[in-house]
Amino acid sequence: MKYTFYTPGPAQLYPSFEQHLQTFVEQQLGSISHRSQQYRALHQHTVEQLRTLLNVPATHAILFLGSASEAWERILLNCVEHESYHLVNGSFSKKFFQYAQALHKFAHKLEKPMGQGFDASEVEVPEYAELIGLAHNETSSGVQMRVSDIHKIKRSNPDKLIAVDMVSSAPYPDLDYSLIDTAFFSVQKAFGLPSGLGVWIVNEKCLQKAERLRKYDNLTIGAHHDLPTLWKNAQNHETPATPNVMGIYLLGKIAEDMNKIGVEAIRKETEQKAKLIYKFIEQHEGFEPFVQESKHRSQTVVVANTKQPSSEIISTLKAKGLVLGSGYGEHKATQVRIANFPATSTEQVEDLIKALGEL
């Protein structure tokens, strides 16, 4: 049986994935040298397509890592000397905070229960915090922070770096990168690709901080993948180590496909599909939205409380070829998570709603 995946990562593969994978194999791109002009052209193409799609200015480098989780570590090592501040309202925003503790940074947090979101007006950043870490979209709980609030936090704290986790939302958020120092995502969610590639968007202020920490404070900012080394290689469309050539190639092709559609059209369709899903779970007696405040509800990962065990719902739908995500952590048995990524069409969302309604 061929399945349609509504899981929040790994997720449904983008419709053109198979075609691009076949081209990659036919052109034997998996065997080319990562120091060749052929690779550099491939790398450059992917960066240029992402710049267009996400509206990333030349002040920011686009770097490739092994995962978004690696980005947490790179950001903390290269951009924080002593103190960081984290908005925590779910498992992944908490992990960013915990990474800071593991790296022996003095980490502050403003924490809310899962399912609740943040407004800029309630965020008071400690005086000595150097970096603000937050999740635009908390994958575990289905809470999305309004982009306007992210921008307000930066405007209120211009001397501090701000790091945005958009792992399960990019390319949906329309971030103003004149106000965003660094952001990151991985490809196995909204870009509809297999896992194994992280993307780190980072500006010159972060680079300068990393260079200062290494040169003047004699701090460890990493070895092979410290920010200055990554940045230097990126200027030549390369990476310090042998990269995930297939992942980078496929990401460039998917980003190119998305650019042909237009990011505004993708955002509009995302919102239309989310509206259909939320309308169903609000009106169906077997479900209710986990995130109570509509202004904080994710447009890309919808989380619903279920009256019957979520495992029963998941297994019933899987028998019909529809695969849902379970709740995260302690909510595994009482929630379902529904990914609303570009790889799933409006028609597929309507098919899911129909199947849920027949339970």
Rank of each mutant, 00 (worst) to 15 (best):
H60I: 05
A61T: 06
I62Q: 04
I62C: 07
I62H: 10
I62M: 10
L63Q: 05
L63N: 03
L63R: 07
L63S: 03
L63D: 05
F64W: 05
F64M: 01
F64S: 09
L65Y: 09
L65G: 11
L65W: 04
L65F: 12
L65I: 09
L65H: 02
G66N: 13
G66F: 08
G66I: 00
G66E: 12
G66K: 11
S67C: 14
S67F: 13
S67K: 15
S67D: 13
S67L: 12
A68F: 11
S69W: 03
S69I: 07
S69T: 12
S69P: 00
E70N: 13
E70W: 01
E70I: 09
E70D: 13
A71L: 05
A71G: 07
W72I: 04
W72M: 02
W72V: 05
W72A: 02
W72Y: 15
E73A: 14
E73W: 01
E73T: 15
R74C: 10
R74A: 12
R74D: 08
R74E: 02
I75C: 06
I75Q: 07
I75Y: 03
L76W: 00
L76A: 13
L77V: 05
L77A: 04
N78S: 15
N78T: 01
N78H: 06
C79K: 01
C79Y: 03
V80M: 04
V80R: 07
V80A: 11
V80W: 01
V80L: 15
E81K: 08
E81A: 09
E81R: 06
E81P: 01
E81W: 03
E81N: 03
H82F: 05
H82W: 04
H82Q: 14
H82K: 14
E83A: 13
E83S: 15
E83T: 13
S84Y: 02
Y85K: 10
Y85M: 12
Y85S: 03
H86W: 13
H86A: 11
L87N: 09
L87D: 07
L87K: 08
L87A: 07
V88W: 06
V88D: 02
V88G: 00
N89S: 15
G90N: 13
G90P: 01
S91W: 02
S91E: 14
F92M: 10
F92E: 15
F92H: 14
F92P: 00
S93R: 09
S93I: 02
K94I: 00
K94P: 00
K94F: 05
K94H: 14
K95A: 07
K95H: 13
K95N: 03
K95P: 05
F96G: 01
F96E: 03
F96T: 11
F96K: 04
